[in-house]
């Protein structure tokens, strides 16, 4: 997409609400090495997002948006849930899909874009909650992986259906009691990263969003691998502070408490051989540096 198309006509510049002017002036479109460090200085989201104050999904959203390698050529596909309340405020093309259908919509979209723009890179990124990804949309999620559709799936795992008041989801921990799951979750947390791996994903990461540099690396690499090799999957713990009874300043600590050794969000990464070989070509400097460290 031409960057000219995201300019405001000068006659209307002064009447455009400030946020839109800032999205144009302070967005990081086209900037090399954009990343999480731009958060705070640049603008990816219109202010007053509609999530609960302190919801970790909002910072996760900012990191994801700030780390997209080519936001002007990216289309995000969302689904119903708390995440869908943020998409109206996002300065990246996005499509809202019927709850659970996101990976089916993204499959068609990616294919249509490849057909329409054969010489251009167009990234498709799904971003949905765990209910949409793992329960109601599991069929669509898995089928897209089996078919080796070339896009990234990001799941904001808050371990329940937050937007509808706290029902249990497949990614909820066994035994967890929520407002609308009073008897406690009956079965183990679905091991979706494992399933992703065996279903054909070439790059799989499970983590919290407590460390933005790690989120940046995962998002960037997942999107690059999806462009060239095949499906990729990222599962981010974005605790629903409202439903687990935390205060608005406690989201970060909740994530830190859940990512230690043997905790359910301990960092896990899987990279297929093909994806590793490809990433080595796009990260040659890093590879050399790592080798140097190893051989020391």
């Amino acid at each position: 997409m031409s960057k000219e198309k995201i300019k405001i006509n000068q006659e209307f510049y002064d009447i455009m609400p400030l946020e839109y002017r800032e999205l144009v002036e302070e967005g990081t479109y086209g900037k090399e090495n954009r990343g999480w460090k731009d958060v705070g200085e640049s603008k990816e989201l219109i202010e007053e997002h509609s999530l609960c104050a302190g919801c970790p999904e909002s910072i996760a959203f900012r990191y994801v948006l700030a780390c997209l390698p080519a936001p002007e050529d990216t289309i995000m596909v969302g689904s119903t849930g708390c995440t869908s309340l943020v998409f109206p405020h996002v300065a990246v093309h996005n499509i809202h899909s019927l709850f659970g259908n996101q990976n089916a919509v993204a499959s068609g979209l990616k294919r249509a874009l490849s057909f329409r723009f054969p010489d251009k890179i167009k990234d498709v990124v799904v971003l949905a909650g765990d209910g949409a990804t793992v329960d109601i949309g599991l069929d669509m999620t898995l089928q897209s992986w089996f078919r080796q559709e070339k896009f990234t799936t990001i799941c904001f795992d808050n371990e329940l259906y937050a937007n509808t008041g706290g029902q249990s989801s497949g990614l909820m921990q066994k035994g967890f009691v929520a407002k609308m799951a009073p008897a406690g979750k009956k079965f183990d947390k679905v091991p979706l990263p494992e399933i992703a791996k065996s279903s054909g994903c070439h790059y799989v990461v499970k983590m919290t969003v407590s460390k933005p540099n790690r989120v940046e690396k995962a998002i960037r690499e997942a999107i690059l691998v999806a462009r060239e090799i095949g499906p990729t999957y990222i599962q981010l713990y974005t605790p629903c502070i409202l439903e687990i009874g935390k205060q608005m300043m406690e989201g970060l600590q909740e994530m830190r408490d859940s990512e230690g050794p043997n905790k359910r969000f301990e960092f896990e990464e899987y990279v297929s051989d093909e994806a590793r070989a490809y990433l080595d070509t796009v990260n040659p400097k890093k590879k050399k540096r790592k080798k140097a460290i190893v051989t020391k």
């Binding site: 000219e4 198309k5 995201i6 300019k7 405001i8 006509n9 000068q10 006659e11 209307f12 455009m16």
Partner: peptide, 14 residues
């Protein structure tokens, strides 16, 4: 007409 996405849009804005 708010966005400068082609020449006609710019002329319409004016």
């Amino acid at each position: 007409v708010l966005w400068n996405w082609n020449e006609t849009a710019a002329r319409k804005a004016a």
